[in-house]
Design a protein around this nucleic acid. Structure first.
Lengths: 194, 194
DNA sequence: TCCCGCCTAACGATCGTTCGTTTGCTACGG
DNA sequence: CCGTAGCAAACGAACGATCGTTAGGCGGGA
């Protein structure tokens, strides 16, 4: 395997360990052991354990933001279409790197105060994209909702459960997962059976 | 506040700290500090840190199971009604003790192998209740679903996001939260407008 | 007097991190 | 073709701090 960057390899290993056991329960020496080097040797490539977590979280956040941005740009103003694109983009980011996505969703509280609040701010902005599409859909009669903010939170909760069970070699390929969740989310937002 | 059991007070404090910072990031001395005693003094009431986590997780699991059992017993065979009761019961257990529910959902991986697999087994059995109602609903034409297992997982993901934002003194009272989520879940399961 | 709740002291282990040194390769001057 | 300078990567020892936990003692209410 060609080694582009030792640092990136560290972050990938750390992603998987943080996902499986959590940031606090994963020691620097645990990460090093997987790479078959000694714990302190890691510090030739990274400045601190928290910096590794931050690199993972920051990159994951950027991928979510870029995917949502692209999805919004690619679709017109039709809320149903826009929401489907947002969901599909979100699921793709998760399935492309489950470890990083899980760390982004669950381990941001381990960051220091500054970085933690920065993540929360970006998360709010991201959720706002979903809420605005929902509000547009309500105004246009495409969606039936009394509480758009709660609906956006519920939608993202549903999607963010995926890293808890999805595995790249599981019974459902990533594309099918996306299809199913687009369907589920649109059902949540569109009017009930009547 | 009348103090029924010192041990229970420890578990309640631990619930809140485990929820806020995670099990591994919470020290025994952190728990003791909130109770205004010294760290080692906890061991007069408790046998180990993991035992505290187990007590919290076990009680939360039992409350989920009991609530689901009661909900199932109270409703007939109508799947829509049964699912509504299951969702309402689940949300009530969460809102009754957000801390314990959050710990149950997120911190079970910190348990030792035996207890962890015991929890996973109970969680599977619990999820099975949801899946069976969904399957019954599909068979009777009440629900439209191609993948009942995935639907059950998605429903529980949606509900288990609640501890991430619900606060007893928040803008939504517990009853409204339950109403909204019953609505959202039934929409997910029932046929869409398309 | 006894016991229960809490104390302080201390243990071995492990944590994140720093430091000085060694290793193995690549490039280049003579 | 040799010798050597340079460099990135990893090593092993060691640091201070903190972890979960044990042990023994002290004080006050029944």
């Amino acid at each position: 395997m060609v080694e582009i960057s030792r640092r990136r390899a560290i972050e990938d290993v750390a992603s998987e360990l943080f996902r499986a056991h959590g940031y606090a329960a994963t020691s620097v020496r645990d990460i090093a052991r997987v790479l078959e080097i000694q714990g302190p040797s890691l510090y030739a490539h990274v400045t601190s354990k928290e910096a590794v977590l931050w690199a993972i979280v920051d990159r994951a956040a950027a991928r979510f933001e870029a995917a949502a941005e692209a999805a919004t740009r690619a679709t017109g103003i039709d809320p149903v279409e826009a929401m489907a694109a947002l969901v599909r983009a979100h699921v793709r980011v998760i399935t492309d790197d489950v470890g990083a996505a899980a760390v982004f969703v669950h381990e941001w509280r381990a960051l220091g105060p500054d970085r933690r609040s920065a993540v929360l701010e970006r998360r709010d902005a991201y959720e706002r994209r979903f809420r605005e599409v929902i509000e547009t859909g309500i105004a246009g009669g495409d969606f039936e909702m009394t509480d758009p903010a709660l609906a956006a939170t519920a939608v993202l909760s549903t999607l963010n459960g995926i890293p808890g069970w999805y595995r790249p070699d599981g019974r459902l390929p990533a594309g099918r997962v996306a299809d199913h969740f687009v369907d589920l989310v649109l059902r949540m937002l569109q009017g009930a059976s009547r």
